[in-house]
Nucleic acid binder design. Structure first.
Length: 844
RNA sequence: GGGCGUUUAGCUCAGUUGGCUAGAGCACUGCCCUUACAAGGCAGGGGUCGGCGGUUCGAGUCCGUCAACGCCCACCA
């Protein structure tokens, strides 16, 4: 093939050019004829498609791509699918804001509803099905934007292997797995207190909780002993006094031991409640006595469960106090309750403080405090605890044996970096309940069950109607169970569909099964599972990583992957956490436009595995400079001949020495990649390459331009070195390496084999020759620099002092050295290494 | 309150089993339009390796301890 080297090579337009070519050539298509041992499979994180792209998204995906590209070149067939996580609350919220709509399950479907052009304000209420339609429309748009970004960044994904967590295939996989869990007893439903978001009106799993420091106040409130003496408690939630079921003290707290077993009366409401003992009550907190309510916090739930206390709930699912007077209050108490009815807890709290102050049941003013309050991580108001029927999957949170099993799975997994395994272990050991998977929302995978209705149209939740496998995926809201017809929906003796959907993690925890087509392509499944790596961020170890481990354990009794690679966290340029509320989110597109994809990739690959990394424009500039350098150096290396020179021509000691050094860099880069350290691999390639351009290329120039005996050797060595460098950089800088490859080679560099020691067989010499000659050259340059003359200035004589063995080596590269130094001659003497250069004419 | 991580040049970071005068890039200074590259090249200045104590012939590297910062977790009385 003749060479086609442009005069003015440029990075401009390379992304679009090569993305198109890779697409039309099918460069990254997965060859499913390969067997499991030949395949390297990646359980790609399906990014949440909620419209916002930021540098955190780019960071981990580029690192994974670099590794995928290495594996592909190293001989593996890479299974590298891409998913979109589009079901769930983030999408719902985006649709609500984007269109200005709210879903309302009570409204009828409007088949003619068009997506609003502009967001409605105030929001329009639309039916559940219309709402879901809008979710589909918008996610499709968002997914196109994501795919375009990934393509521009050069992710070597097989774009025919995409999935979305809301598509038919994912819904089917999710429902099949759920029904398997149900059949084996791993999934169950239960009426129980749950942490509840009053805005989203859905329960929240432990993994989605976060504590936020919030202001509050301790109210010191008197209950009354039978004789009328006060017993004080301190509470930050006085509004729940009406739902108090007991007071509690520590069993060994002598101050209250007389009281335990007796009853006291609540202020205002006059309800008689027992005083009980429990070790969770802390003597030195507050007055040592706490009030137990339905439910003020999760400790209340523990006390309620373990002490078998009654249930007196007043807060409804919408977060307000119920309107009707609770039946445990008498008329006097009811009058006070009327003051609270319909209020939100914070309003009721203020009113109660007033009422208690008026009645004299509060001692002093409320004491302002800061304390942690539980929130849904995506929510804006504190969680309440309400009782409702929900679905759970057992995860060891209520079973020590199972917990140990899952801790063991974490130990079995290889973690990169290793310390990330500790986070998994801490999480599993700290679980305090099973995994709550049901959500009372719209856009998600439905729980695929119906319930028979008795004569009073009450559902029998203990005997769900399970669909046959061939009905999946289904929506029990619109599909009818076998043996029934639609007219029986909601009728006595008929059926009703489960109205819940599953949380998004209940589906994305099956990403290996979805991508590997567990339910419908056993042949593919066998070739890719268990997968080789799970790359992901540290913040979703407790959710995605753990839940995937749980599902694979139940379904296949195996770890879903051998290795988990955890990327670091992305910080803004000032090393602060990026967040929308701080307004410091950096988006990738403007950066790609300014610096180019290669530069952004270079930055991402400079972030070491698991290490938090700041967005750094300086690093991107270096990456861009490297890419330009590759173009220019390639132009030089390929500029001497029109076709390849046989490698056997490489006889010159300096050339062979250079190749010895390069062989070492290849070994280092390979070893680094094998231990998932892409950064070290990049560093090895880069250090070698800059040395090559700075020193070797300068040394070899005269010989390469000439037509003397060493010219062929120089040409062949340049060519071989370039071929190796392009392949070393290909995983990191896929566009520029492909561009240069196309100047003189057929096919894609990304389907070439990774450089190996074999390629240097019989072509390497003593590595020190190039090192020593470079040192002498540097010394001569220093002399010129100090003398403030041009590097072209002629040198009369270079005098090298060095140990005898080094002199011998330097002499092997002497001709090139003299040319590069523009020196007339060299002389040598034995001794400690030093170089003296006499400039030819210092006055010129 | 517990756990994990980080702390090396003004800035961002390397430094793999302890071993010769501690490295890179950016920034800074000086020089050079040298035919691959001036959105470049060459050369240079700059560091008590967070503090203290220990192991060792030798410690940025191992051990102990303290501190600062970050992250994760934790029963909201």
């Amino acid at each position: 093939m003749t060479r086609n080297v442009p005069d003015k090579p440029t990075l401009d337009g390379l992304e679009a050019k090569w993305d198109e070519r890779w697409e039309s050539d099918g460069t990254y298509l997965f060859d499913r004829a390969k067997t499991r041992d030949e395949i390297f499979s990646i359980d790609t994180p399906p990014p949440t498609v909620s419209g916002s792209l930021h540098m955190g998204s780019v960071f981990g995906y580029v690192q994974t791509d670099a590794h995928a590209r290495y594996r592909r070149m190293a001989g593996s067939e890479v299974f590298y699918p891409m998913g979109w996580d589009d079901n769930g609350l983030p999408t719902e919220r985006r649709v609500q804001n984007y269109y200005g709509v709210r879903g309302d399950a009570s409204l009828p479907y409007d088949p003619d509803l068009a997506p609003p052009e502009e967001p409605h304000d105030p929001p329009v209420l639309i039916s559940r099905r219309n709402f879901i339609d809008l979710c589909h429309i918008l996610t499709l748009e968002d997914e196109k934007v994501f795919e375009q970004l990934w393509r521009t960044l050069g992710l070597s994904v097989d774009w025919t292997q995409t999935y979305a967590t809301i598509d038919d295939h994912s819904r089917r996989t999710s429902q099949v797995a759920f029904l398997n869990n149900l059949a084996r007893g791993e999934a169950y439903s239960q009426e129980a207190p749950v942490l509840w978001d009053v805005d989203f009106q859905t329960p929240v799993a432990q993994a989605e909780l976060e504590d936020r420091e919030k202001g509050g106040a301790y109210h010191k409130v008197a209950f009354r002993k039978p004789g009328g003496e006060p017993i004080y408690i301190e509470t930050s939630r006085p509004e729940l006094i009406c739902s108090c079921v007991a007071l509690v003290a520590h069993p060994e707290d002598a101050r209250y031991s007389d009281l335990v077993g007796s009853t006291v009366t609540s202020p205002l409401f006059g309800v008689e409640v027992p005083v009980v003992a429990h070790p969770l009550a802390e003597p030195d907190r507050g007055t040592g006595v706490a009030m137990i309510c339905t439910f003020g916090d999760t400790t209340d739930v523990t006390w309620w469960r373990e002490l078998e206390l009654p249930t007196r709930a007043v807060i409804q699912h919408d977060g307000r106090f119920q309107e009707e007077t609770p039946d445990w209050l008498d008329s006097e108490g009811g009058a006070f309750y009327a003051e609270l009815a319909g209020l939100f807890p914070n309003q009721a709290r203020r009113r109660m403080a007033e009422l208690l102050a008026e009645s004299g049941d509060m001692d002093g003013e409320p004491k302002q405090i800061m304390h942690p309050v539980k929130f849904y991580e995506k929510g804006d108001r504190p969680l309440e605890i309400v009782t409702s029927r929900q679905w759970y999957i057992r995860n060891g949170g209520r079973d020590d044996e199972l917990r140990k099993t899952f801790v063991g799975r974490g130990e079995e997994l290889r973690w990169v970096p290793g310390f990330m395994g500790t986070r998994y272990q801490d999480w599993v050991e700290g679980l305090n309940g099973d995994w709550l998977i049901s959500r009372q929302r719209f856009f998600g995978v439905p729980i695929p069950l119906w319930y028979p209705l008795d004569d009073a149209a009450e559902p029998d939740f203990d005997n769900p109607i399970v669909p046959p496998a061939d009905m999946l995926p289904l929506d029990p809201f619109s599909d009818v169970p076998p043996g029934y017809d639609e007219s029986q929906r909601g009728q006595p003796g008929g059926f009703t569909g489960d109205t819940d959907i599953m949380d998004t993690w209940a589906t994305s925890s099956l990403s290996p099964q979805i991508a590997g087509h567990w339910v419908d392509d056993p042949d593919l499944w066998e070739r890719v599972f268990p997968m080789d790596i799970r790359p992901q961020g540290p913040e979703i170890i407790r959710t995605w990583l753990f839940s995937t481990t749980v599902r694979a354990h139940y379904e296949h009794d195996v770890l879903p992957w051998h290795t988990a690679t955890i990327n670091g966290w992305i910080l803004d340029p000032d090393r602060k956490k990026m967040s929308k509320s701080l307004g410091n989110v950096v988006t990738p597109l403007p950066l790609i436009e300014e610096y180019g994809s290669e530069a952004v990739r270079y930055w991402a690959c400079n972030g070491r595995p698991g290490v938090d990394t700041a967005v750094d424009f300086g690093v991107m500039k270096i990456g861009r400079r490297l890419a330009i350098k590759i173009l220019n150096a390639s132009r030089f290396a390929l500029g001497f001949t029109d076709s390849d020179v046989e490698a056997s021509a490489i006889t010159n000691p300096l050339d062979r020495s250079m190749l010895a050094g390069l062989a070492e860099a290849v070994a280092n880069a390979t070893q680094a990649f094998e231990s998932y350290d892409y950064t070290r691999a990049l560093e090895a390639a880069e250090r070698s390459f800059w040395g090559w351009t700075d020193d070797y290329v300068e040394l070899v120039k005269a010989r390469a331009y000439g037509d003397g005996p060493g010219a062929d050797s120089a040409h062949a060595a340049l060519q071989l070195a370039l071929s190796v460098y392009l392949r070393l950089f290909a995983p990191f800088l896929p566009f520029v390496t492909e561009e240069v490859w196309s100047w003189w080679r057929q096919g894609s560099v990304h389907r070439e084999s990774w450089p190996s020691a074999d390629e240097f067989e019989g072509l390497t010499g003593e590595a020190q020759v190039a090192d020593l000659v470079s040192q002498v050259l540097t010394a001569v340059r220093r002399v010129k620099s100090d003398a403030k003359v041009s590097m072209r200035a002629e040198v009369e004589r270079v005098s090298v002092t060095a140990p005898a063995d080094q002199i011998a080596l330097i002499k092997e590269g002497e001709l090139d050295l003299l040319e590069a130094a523009r020196a007339a001659e060299a002389d040598y003497s034995e001794g400690e290494f030093s170089v003296v250069a006499e400039l030819a004419d210092s006055s010129s």
